[in-house]
Structure formats: C-alpha cells, structure tokens
C-alpha cells in the first residue's frame, strides 16, 4: 500500500489553511462522520454581486439581485473556512478544499465530485477512508444546497 501520509497531506494537517469561523457566512453547514467521530463545520462568504470577489472566471453578471433579495446566479465564493476535529485525511482535505473553492462559483463547487477531491489530495484513498476524504466537500455542498433553497429561484 502506498503511503497516504505524504508531505503535502501532513503539511495541510499540521498547518491548516483557512481554519476558523467566518462571521455571518452566506453558506454554512455542520456535519459529522459518525463512523470516525469526525465533526466539521464549513463556512463560505460570497463575493458581492458585480464585485470582483476572487477571480471571477466564468461568472455571469446578469443575474445579480440584492443580497437580501435572493437569486445570485453564478455567485462566487470569496472566502471559505472550516472548523473541524478529525483524522489527518479529513483535516487536510478540508484545508485544501477551502483553498480550491476560492473564486469558484457556487454552482461549480456544487458540481464537484469525489474524483475532484481525489485529484486534489493526490494520494491513494482506500474505500474505508473515502468518507474522511469527502467529508468537507459533502458538508460544503450541503451548505450550498441550503443556500439554493433559501434563494429559491436558482437557475430560473
């Protein structure tokens, strides 16, 4: 079995990026992985519509309404953060994910898959550890789902 505890994983584990609470986040979700006892909360702050929060990439400017109004098509994540307790794999994945999603639209993050996480981690993850690897992404996506729901006319 190849080593999963490679330097970049241990680096993110011991010096996690973006670890900490984000005040009044646009996206928030807390979840746990009962198998491991891991707990995680993911936060994201979106860029103001029309502003250049992060590298705006393929963002469409046409759908923007006001912050409290609702629909923000292709709004972009300006900053993501997390607080968590768990194994090295789940912590490193959370740290790397918060870096990865900055500047991406919420839709793009919502569409990310487990394969994207594996590509990001660059280690062979066994079946038993997949839950650890994807916990951060699944939690962030659950938060995005809540965001979509409260801003109902998504994709309209």
């Amino acid at each position: 079995m190849a080593d999963i505890y490679q330097e970049h994983i241990l680096d993110h584990y011991s010096r996690p990026r973006n670890k900490g609470v984000i005040d009044s986040p646009d996206i928030y979700y807390k979840d746990s992985n009962p198998l491991c006892g891991d707990e995680i909360a993911m936060y994201a702050k979106l860029a103001k519509p029309g502003s250049d929060g992060g590298n705006s990439g393929n963002r469409s400017d046409s759908g923007g309404r006001s912050d409290d109004g609702g629909v923000m098509e292709n709004r972009v994540i300006a900053k993501a953060g997390f607080i968590a307790r768990g194994c090295a794999i789940s912590q490193a994945a959370a740290s790397m994910l918060t870096e990865r999603v900055e500047g991406k639209s919420v839709e793009a993050v919502y569409a990310m898959s487990a394969d994207d996480v594996l590509g990001m981690l660059m280690i062979p993850v066994s079946h038993a550890r997949m839950k650890c690897a994807v916990l951060a992404l699944k939690t962030l996506q659950a938060g995005i789902a809540v965001y979509f729901k409260t801003n109902k006319t998504r994709g309209a």
Binding site: M1, D3, I4, Y5, C36, G86, C87, A88, I89, R129, C132
Partner: peptide, 13 residues
C-alpha cells in the same frame, strides 16, 4: 492529538 484512524492506518502499513 493524533486521530485513532491515523494510528490504525499507519500500523496497518
């Protein structure tokens, strides 16, 4: 503070 799953995974190696 090392998570038990990390301990188990390294011992498995």
């Amino acid at each position: 503070s090392i998570h038990a799953h990390d301990v188990a995974a390294i011992l498995d190696q």
